[in-house]
C-alpha cells in the first residue's frame, strides 16, 4: 500500500504523448500555449513526441524577428527542449517542402517524415494533443 506522501499526482504509467503543432507561431496564441504545455508536461516524465506540420513548421524556423509586431519571439525556447529530455521532434516532409524550406532553415535538429510515416507514428500514440 502506498504511503500518503507517495500518493502524488505524478503517479501512473508512462504514456506516449504526441503534441502536433499545426499553426504559425504568431497570429494566434496556439503555438505559444502549446509550447507551455510541452514544458510543463516534461516534468511528468512521459514519452513525448513533437510534430510540426502545416504552418506549424514556421514555429521552428531560424531568424525569427518579431520586433515589428510587438509580440515576444519565443522561438529560442524550442532549443531548450533538449534540456527537458524532449528529443523526439518530427517534421512532416511535405509541409516543409511546400513552404520552400529545408532542415537547414530550422533552429533545432528534427527527423523528417512523410505523411504516411507520420500517420504510423500517430497510430502508436496514446494521447495526441493538436494545437
Amino acid at each position: 500500500m502506498a504511503e500518503p506522501w507517495e500518493d502524488d499526482e505524478l503517479e501512473g504509467p508512462v504514456r506516449k504523448f504526441m503534441y502536433v503543432n499545426r499553426r504559425a507561431p504568431y497570429g494566434t496564441i496556439y503555438a505559444l500555449e502549446s509550447l507551455e504545455v510541452v514544458l510543463i508536461a516534461a516534468a511528468f516524465e512521459q514519452d513525448v513526441t513533437l510534430v510540426f506540420m502545416d504552418d506549424g513548421v514556421y514555429q521552428i524556423k531560424k531568424d525569427q524577428n518579431t520586433d515589428a509586431i510587438g509580440v515576444k519571439n519565443f522561438s529560442p525556447t524550442y532549443r531548450a527542449l533538449e534540456g527537458y529530455d524532449v528529443e523526439k521532434l518530427y517534421v512532416e516532409k511535405e509541409s516543409l517542402a511546400s513552404r520552400g524550406l529545408t532542415t537547414d532553415d530550422l533552429i533545432v535538429p528534427v527527423q523528417l517524415v512523410d505523411k504516411d510515416q507520420l500517420a504510423q507514428l500517430m497510430e502508436e500514440q496514446e494521447v495526441i494533443l493538436s494545437f
Partner: peptide
Amino acid sequence: SGLGQLIEAGIQSDRMVIFG
C-alpha cells in the same frame, strides 16, 4: 489549477477527447 492537471488527465484516462 495548473497544466499538470491536463497531463494527469491524459495519463489517467482511457481517452482524451479534444474540442477545438
